[in-house]
Design a binder for these strands. Structure first.
Lengths: 184, 184
DNA sequence: TCAATTTATAACACTGGATGCCAAAATGGA
DNA sequence: TCCATTTTGGCATCCAGTGTTATAAATTGA
């Protein structure tokens, strides 16, 4: 990650990485399925946490509230880790090779959400409602991450809140009299 | 495309394609920026059409109605072309390399929608609302395509209708007696 | 009609990610 | 200490993608 940050993702070859680690190039590919996976790190664990949060969600809680809470919870890092996360997301969104790879990882994310959505909406995870919801939810989450990184503040949770709120409301405009003035 | 369909995308090398066309391998890359772009075909033209439809949308029409109409219109193919489209989409969704590449093309699609969304929602295309909407809309569109291909019928427009309707309603359940009063 | 210029083609070489194969090195008992 | 298992990494190979360059084709101008 230090090399990527310093020299850029494309300019850093796997040979460079292997050399910096003092290991063989072939060994790098034993620990990471691809160069892109180095940036994605422990995404599998994050997915598992998301899955657990969604399973544990109480049935009464509104659909998007569950999702928002689960996504916020699985992305709740300490102040020290936020900087690291920012670097990773900036890379993932700006480097073409990583943007491309992200589609494969996001498909796994969607699957987890689709299974949850099917339980709530009825039908199968492969049906249109669950499929649409999982993709829209991914859109909301990534939009929040994107805007958070772009602005550079530290209110990731707030952005996630807003994004899921927009989705839940069907993007209806400002919304008239309404007690919760937080999101607008 | 015939080679991809017959032998599979990965098993078909660019050399194979060049040989089948009776041209040089280097020449293939003059006409297509990448192997994946061969499958995507005239996506640029499709994007331009989407953009045109969204620009022409009347201001009074509800947000998601514009989007639904524009997406349906830009993907309205004749009966003969639908088979071809099905093959293309199935490839794009099943081959990892194409799934990955799709993220780059979809980013262009989102940009067009984000510009439109910013006009309607206020703010800039880079702001959270437009960003979220464009990503959610992409989710709805791709969900419809996915389910359409999966089921194998010929009601693509119907699926697109449903997906955008779900989005507009915030995925609220079946919906009680309700004429269509803008938003929930 | 014939040169002159431009553009299209394609051969060649090279980079860099990814994978299969296999031998050497490290590890861990017994 | 010896054997078995795992880890490591060197080597060769494949393939996508790119720069360079010579040649062929098309276009333009006189």
């Amino acid at each position: 990650m230090a090399l990527f940050d310093r020299d850029g993702y494309d300019a850093t070859t796997v040979d460079d990485i292997a050399a910096a680690l003092g290991i063989g190039r072939r060994t790098v590919f034993r620990y990471f399925a691809s160069k892109a996976d180095i940036v994605w790190g422990e995404f599998d664990a994050e997915l598992a946490r998301l899955d657990r949060h969604l399973r544990d969600a109480p049935d009464g809680e509104p659909l998007f509230d569950c999702l928002r809470r689960a996504v916020v919870a699985t992305n709740h890092f300490g102040a020290g880790e936020l900087g690291e996360l920012r670097v990773r997301i900036r890379l993932i969104e700006s480097v073409d090779a990583l943007v491309a790879h992200s589609a494969v990882r996001y498909a796994e994310w969607r699957r987890v959400v689709a299974v949850f959505a099917a339980r709530r909406l009825g039908g199968e995870p492969d049906d249109l409602p669950a499929e649409t919801l999982s993709r829209a939810a991914l859109g909301a989450a990534t939009a929040a991450f994107t805007c958070w990184v772009r602005r550079g503040d530290d209110n990731l949770s707030g952005d996630l809140d807003q994004a899921f709120e927009l989705l839940a409301r069907g993007f209806s405009l400002p919304e008239p009299p309404h007690r919760r003035s937080a999101a607008t």
